[in-house]
Amino acid sequence: MSETTLNDDQDLSGLPLVDNPVMPYLRQERIPHIWCPGCGIGTTVNCFTRALEEAALDLDKVAIVSGIGCTGRVAGYLNLDSFHTTHGRAIPFATGLKLANPDLNVVVYSGDGDLFAIGGNHFMHAARRNMDLLVVCVNNFTYGMTGGQVAPTTPIGATQTTMPFGNFENPASLPFLADAAGATFVARWTVFHVRQLTRCFKEALGKKGFRFIEIMAPCPTLFLRRNRLGDGVDMVRQYKERSVLRNGADTKEVAVGMEGDIVVGTFVDRERPTWLEAMNSHFSSVLGDRYRTYGG
């Protein structure tokens, strides 16, 4: 990405109108969306829809599940079977959906507060079980929709409305958690890395098991402004400057802070039986012909 594309002062009014290639993947009647100018969530959705296109999946068999929060609204904008559930519970909802109809490719798309604070327990157990879900976390280091409260990802030192004198809690390193809990695929990108992220989505959509992608994204309204970090463009510039590609990195060493390297890449890529595969093979072996193999 060149510097000029980050300049939002260009006058585009004279350019011819063309159809945006992601529009068929969106519920166009629901646009405009609710996200603030400079928010990173839309960029992730853009990459996701391009990955859907490139992966050439039967979109009738792709379902998306979100929790609550700014990222939780993604489900409503995508022209897929989509479920906007309760706060923190997208993963167990998706678990039921996937197990009831294993033909579905089920994607959980939610924020860091939703997936890792209120929903942290479910994340751990779904990863442990190797539930066949792609879990996408847009990590903006804050609770956006409720007005900028401290999140389990907020770096030490950052100011938030419920940490008015700066955060003193140790944040979670999401790839480390995912790895330790047993995820079969763990990657991290930022909204600067649109091509890599699109490729990563496509790759992960084609795999099985509990797959986790963390995407760092700016919340200009509530995280950046409060911490004098500039606007969305400034943050993307930081992502560009601070990010270091390290595929296969030890997830113990990929924590992020207010400063320093942001390690990106695919950290974990391994195979083990999904929950449903394990159930079917186990019951077949112990129950023999009495078992009715479950396929949905």
Partner: peptide, 12 residues
Amino acid sequence: AASITMLGAVWG
């Protein structure tokens, strides 16, 4: 989790 996994399965 038990109560919402059930609801996911409804839509499956």
